[in-house]
Amino acid sequence: MVDRKKDMIISGGENIYCAELENAVAAHPSVREVAVIGRSDERWGQVPVAYVTLVPGAELSLRELTEFLVGRLASFKWPKDLVLVAELPRNAGGKVLKPLLRTRDAEGAGVSER
């Protein structure tokens, strides 16, 4: 239950469900896979961060992704950071290891577009 509870981000008192944001980001034609986590933020409590793998040869910036999400999601739900990764960490069953992403994020690992 603890992992599922962390799949909801509370940002400025608003609930952001990771699955909703992941579905919206995944609809972008450059995105192969996405996982969304919450990052601690002094002002908002938490902000959403999208970890994304791209389709071969594609490029994507946070600005392009944000423009894509206009009209699809409320602006407070948009990712505040985009981290491009070669692959998402998975367990033997194929499930994305979000706790590992949270640890890496807290340590500042990964290529980020802050």
Rank of each mutant, 00 (worst) to 15 (best):
G71S: 05
R72Y: 12
L88S: 06
V55N: 07
E107A: 15
E20T: 07
I9E: 03
R114K: 14
G12W: 02
I10L: 01
L65A: 03
S112E: 00
G94I: 08
A109W: 01
S11L: 08
A74C: 02
I37N: 00
G94N: 11
G38W: 04
M1H: 00
L84K: 09
V36K: 06
F68W: 15
V83K: 04
A74W: 08
D3M: 00
E87D: 12
E22M: 04
E67K: 01
N15C: 10
G57W: 04
A86H: 12
V70Q: 15
P48D: 07
L62Q: 10
F76S: 07
R43M: 12
I9V: 04
L100D: 14
P79C: 11
G93A: 14
L101A: 12
V96K: 01
G57V: 11
N91P: 13
V47S: 02
P48Y: 12
V111R: 13
Q46W: 00
E59C: 09
S40H: 10
E113G: 05
W44Y: 12
A74N: 12
E107G: 05
T103H: 02
V111F: 13
V83P: 00
R4E: 01
A26V: 10
G13M: 11
F68K: 09
A35V: 07
L84Q: 04
R72G: 04
G13D: 06
V70P: 06
N15F: 02
P29F: 12
R104K: 15
G38A: 14
A19M: 11
I37K: 05
A58E: 13
E20R: 09
L60I: 02
L84T: 03
M8V: 14
E67C: 01
E64L: 03
G57S: 06
R32H: 15
I37S: 08
I9F: 08
V83S: 09
A19T: 06
L88A: 04
L73Q: 12
K95H: 06
S11M: 05
I16V: 15
T66M: 03
R104G: 14
A58D: 11
I16P: 10
L82N: 00
E87N: 10
V49Y: 09
R102T: 04
I9Y: 04
P89Y: 13
E87Q: 07
A58F: 02
G110Q: 09
V111G: 10
V2Y: 06
Y17D: 12
V34E: 00
P29R: 04
S61E: 04
A26K: 15
A106I: 00
V36Y: 01
A19R: 11
G108I: 06
E87R: 13
G93H: 04
L88W: 10
A27S: 11
E59S: 14
R104S: 10
V70K: 15
R63Q: 12
T66G: 13
A58G: 05
A35K: 05
P48E: 11
L54Q: 02
A50C: 13
K5V: 08
K5S: 11
G108V: 06
G110A: 10
V25A: 03
K6P: 01
